Computed example of a mutant assay.
Amino acid sequence: MKFRVVTPFLAALLMAAVCVSVFAVPRSQIQDVYKWKPEHIYSTVQKWEEDVQALRTGLDALAAFKGQFSGPSAKNPAESLIAYNQLSEQLKIKYELLEAYCSYHFHVDMGDAEWVGRSQQMEDLSRIFNEKTSWFEPELLTIPRATLMHWVDANPALQTYRKTYEDMFLLQEHTLSEPEEQILAQAGNITETAADVFGKMTNVDMRWGYLLDEKGDSVQITDEGWTSWRVSQ
């Protein structure tokens, strides 16, 4: 996913740098200027949910390109590759916007069951994205390098991806077969479980002690607050 909006992590660091005590007061008392504004991405949750469904539909369309670059079904492979790349980039942007909107809401209160569920939904969509496209590189690697590079030379719309394809061939011996790549994509939820559990435990369930801030006030320690307190000393 190459498209990036300002991440919640970066926003949290900026907020921490401005004021340590911001973590010691209820969110309702924090000035709006220091709050994320996810409504700039989606005006309502309903619009977000509509785009979630649009992404699912788009991923099915992306998977339908399988076999159009190599093999008996590949009638216009270069044109199909251009269309695939265009749709893939559009869906990556859509995913990043969906994930950012969800993440901003989720990190306001990581114990909010509604946004916990939506956050898990985004994790599932990431896995589905990888699974639906796991066949892509194995199929391209069945095409002779000279042939693929000829397509790139002959089509300006593919020239942006020249370095990507060159790197793909350099790593060819480390690329698994299509079934094996699909297994790896499906294993995403398993490999991320430990980090998810740790994050929920430290951000929701665990309660930290207290320290004195730069004003001498007693504030409860949080991950962000501890980092900013150390910087302020």
Rank of each mutant, 00 (worst) to 15 (best):
A63L: 09
K66Y: 02
F69M: 09
S70A: 09
P72F: 04
N76V: 05
P77E: 09
A78W: 00
A78D: 13
S80N: 15
L81P: 09
I82F: 02
A83T: 11
N85G: 02
L87I: 07
L87T: 07
S88I: 00
E89N: 12
I93A: 05
K94P: 00
K94D: 03
K94N: 04
Y95I: 01
E96Q: 10
A100G: 01
A100Q: 06
C102H: 02
S103R: 03
S103L: 08
H105R: 15
H107G: 00
G111L: 07
G111E: 11
D112A: 09
D112R: 06
D112W: 03
A113Y: 06
W115K: 06
V116P: 00
V116I: 15
G117T: 11
R118S: 00
R118K: 13
S119M: 10
S119K: 03
Q120S: 12
Q120V: 04
Q121K: 14
M122Y: 03
I128K: 03
F129M: 11
N130Y: 02
E131V: 10
E131D: 07
E131T: 12
K132T: 08
W135A: 01
L140G: 06
L140Y: 06
L140R: 04
I143W: 01
I143S: 02
R145D: 05
A146Q: 12
M149T: 05
H150W: 04
W151L: 07
V152D: 11
A154G: 07
P156R: 09
L158A: 04
T160H: 14
Y161E: 13
Y165N: 04
E166A: 15
D167I: 06
M168H: 01
M168Y: 02
L170K: 14
L171E: 10
Q172K: 15
T175H: 06
T175F: 03
L176S: 14
S177N: 05
E178T: 12
E180R: 11
E181A: 09
E181Y: 00
I183C: 01
L184G: 02
L184D: 12
Q186T: 10
Q186R: 15
A187G: 06
G188Q: 15
N189H: 08
T191V: 15
A195E: 13
A195W: 05
D196S: 12
D196P: 00
D196N: 13
K200W: 10
K200D: 12
K200N: 08
M201T: 15
T202D: 12
N203S: 09
